[in-house]
């Protein structure tokens, strides 16, 4: 049915972290869904019904090969195809840092879904801080680009994102911070590489 290799759960601990928050049989929208691997993982692990939104041609084709629903569209122009409150979860997996209009995307996530799940590379991770202190833009496992070719234009730290949520009507329900496969609880803004948040509209 498909020709693409599916990353295993072990190789994508970020998928497992997101899946852990998603109720079985939920309706999920995955923004910037890439090749559809996460949606496929959620379908197989959580029996979710879902759609991905993706702009890149090669990724859209990969989604077809992965047998997941994908709508080719530009996130930046909003989520006009989706009715308010029509999803249980909207996921923005490692895409937040690459969008232009961050405020609008988060606003749209809160509109179309009961809950949002966001993951992003923590710019406050100590290796990133160290490189900046040594006079260079950071290049690391989660930020693998050079300053001149990076798509990541809106990097932030855990603290920044939490402040952003407070200011934009998003109430954080849960947070998870990872360093590779391991959860980080001690000094997460310093020791965490990847941050996950589950949030809802401020009531």
């Amino acid at each position: 049915m498909n020709t693409l290799a599916m990353p295993t759960t072990a190789s994508r601990p970020d998928f497992a972290a997101i899946a852990a928050w998603v109720r079985p049989c939920a309706k999920v929208l995955d923004l910037g869904c890439g090749d559809g691997s996460l949606l496929r993982f959620l379908r197989d692990a959580r029996n979710v019904r879902g759609y991905g939104v993706e702009i890149d041609d090669a990724n859209v084709l990969a989604c077809f090969n992965n047998g997941v629903n994908v709508i080719q569209s530009d996130l930046e122009s909003g989520l006009l195809s989706f009715e308010s409150g029509s999803f249980d979860y909207v996921v923005l997996s490692q895409t937040l840092q690459a969008v232009k209009n961050t405020e609008n995307i988060v606003k749209e996530m809160l509109r179309v879904s009961k809950e949002g799940i966001v993951s992003f590379p923590n710019f406050g991770y100590w290796k990133n801080r160290l490189q900046v202190m040594l006079g260079h833009m950071p290049v690391s496992e989660t930020l693998p680009y050079q300053w001149f070719d990076t798509p990541n234009i809106h990097n932030c730290t855990l603290g920044d994102f939490e402040e952003f949520c407070r200011q934009h009507g998003a109430r954080i329900l849960e947070r998870r911070v990872m360093n590779g496969d391991h959860p980080v609880t001690f000094l997460p803004n310093l020791l965490g590489m990847l941050a996950f948040y589950r949030f809802e509209r401020q009531k």
Binding site: K27, D57, C63, F64, V70, I71, Q72, F82, E83, S86
Partner: peptide
Amino acid sequence: VKSLLDNELNVSYAE
């Protein structure tokens, strides 16, 4: 596509 999404039907769309 919008009308199909509104009915939670399986749909993929490419431009």
